[in-house]
Write a protein that binds this DNA or RNA. Structure first.
Lengths: 134, 134
DNA sequence: CTTGCTGTACTATGTAACACAGTACAGCTA
DNA sequence: TAGCTGTACTGTGTTACATAGTACAGCAAG
């Protein structure tokens, strides 16, 4: 079962929480290639939000190549493919990562602690890439 | 010399770019403890933005313990201190890091590549923590 | 073919964040 | 005293976010 949790009033908008959680579910293997994800209206009803908000999140995920839409059928987890050039990937990763690393140091973490932390979080993805084609 | 660059029209608001860049400058050693940072009005004039926008960014940095204000004198880089509990630090780091790691995997990076990337970016902070008390 | 789901695309509305302009006041320092 | 500093307001315009409601086309099961 695929669960989504949202919180209102926080600094992160609803559609962004949807994007992050679907992406995380795909990356961690909770969702596999070809799996259907909740329909726009179904998820909207479940989370008690507007269906346009879900559609906006899904559209973002389509742009990122995480999911694909099939008119009249629904959304499905897309097979992985390269969207951006290697240089663009590096640029995007650096842009997203640098502020987080600066904040981590500000919070008092040492470089070793940060590296260990990242390794620990990444370890959750290990099974996702190995147990994929039974 | 301490330089700040902002871009408008992007997804990141101006005050957030200020926060990130000042924090990065402190973390990388471009700014040391006790160093003055540009005054609210001076930086506002330099970047051609409203002084309230700068004040908002600086207030955020004060909340995070990165800088301190002295009435009538200006802002200065604060000495490091612990603001949050260890558990809160872990929670914040995980919250900030997880979406970035998910996006990194989506971009096509392997876990090894991500770890190497993080280590590479962290290496820039090494000199900042060693060459501090001459 | 009809029914009911699906994605998709609009218009319109309300709220909040962001940034601006201008003003004002208190503290520090030369 | 003069001129800088931080700080705190009020007010305004723009944009992002989310809502409500509607509409239409594609797919699939009855």
């Amino acid at each position: 079962m695929f669960q989504v949790q949202i919180t209102t009033g926080g600094d992160s908008p609803i559609f962004r929480q949807i994007v992050d959680q679907v992406r995380a579910a795909v990356v961690t293997g909770k969702l596999s290639v070809g799996d259907p994800i909740p329909s726009v209206r179904a998820l909207a009803a479940e989370l008690v939000v507007n269906h346009n908000t879900i559609a906006k999140a899904y559209a973002q995920l389509v742009r990122d190549g995480v999911i694909e839409s099939q008119q009249g059928r629904g959304y499905f987890v897309a097979r992985k493919r390269q969207i951006y050039t290697q240089a663009e990937c590096n640029r995007r990763l650096a842009a997203a990562l640098d502020p987080v690393l600066s904040e981590a140091v500000t919070l008092g973490f040492s470089t070793d602690q940060i590296l260990a932390f990242v390794a620990k979080r990444l370890r959750r993805y290990a099974d996702a890439s190995t147990a994929k084609d039974p």
